[in-house]
Design a protein around this nucleic acid. Sequence first.
DNA 1: ATGACTGCCTCTGGCAGA
Length: 257
Amino acid sequence: MRIASFNINGIKARLPRLLEWLVETRPAVACLQEIKTQDEGFPADEFAAIGYQAIWHGQKGFNGVAILADGTAPVQTQRGLPGDQEDEQSRYLEADVNGVRIACIYLPNGNPQPGPKFDYKLAWMERLRSHMRALTAQELPAVVLGDYNVIPEDKDVWSPRAMADDALMQPGSRDAYARLLHDGWTDAIGTLNPQGQVWTYWDYQAGAWQRDHGFRIDHALLSPELADRLVSAGVDKPYRGREKASDHAPVWIELRA
DNA sequence: ATGACTGCCTCTGGCAGA
């Protein structure tokens, strides 16, 4: 069973690329981030035409997440991250698919830091941790995957020096991410690539793709119940090099049965 | 070098992204 995540940076602009990727790699589940559309604009029919059913949480202009499942309807278990009634940003969606709890996240970027956007990021990460602890308490086979907007360690970025002031790799961001791992969650791609140097994002600017100036910010965290079933994990890197590509590449995990 | 690109909604320039 393959479960994938793709920050698509605009579902309208990216639809042909997205459909192509689904047909070519055929994940059982695909989590999408940055759909950048209101609920009414979500192209559910286009996905149904290639055999995927979907749930989504849109927002006008930016953010927005969705969960697609091959040949079955995702059963929604949560829409929006709990813990703050005031938070109206669409960054969290959760569903059960084939006995696995799937949480699709688009964690706040946090730049510029310091500042209110960074404070929001850290507060969001605290809320995420609380909710993930609730998931592990239920002893569910669960995966929380998506764009975490955190570079976990220096080996996960082409140049720690160039990125030193970025919100993605501040100690506060990294510590909050490390706490999730300490709680018992397994970083699938990180665990299978201990040497680092695996990227999931390359900036549009400054020839970052051509120079392979990337970093790893899209992650799949597995609950203890699911970690035992991990077979492999990876990045669909070539999709970053196609025409009209997203600035992220898709990431995926493969689970036993 | 206060650089570089892309998408969105549109006050077609300003914001957001990372």
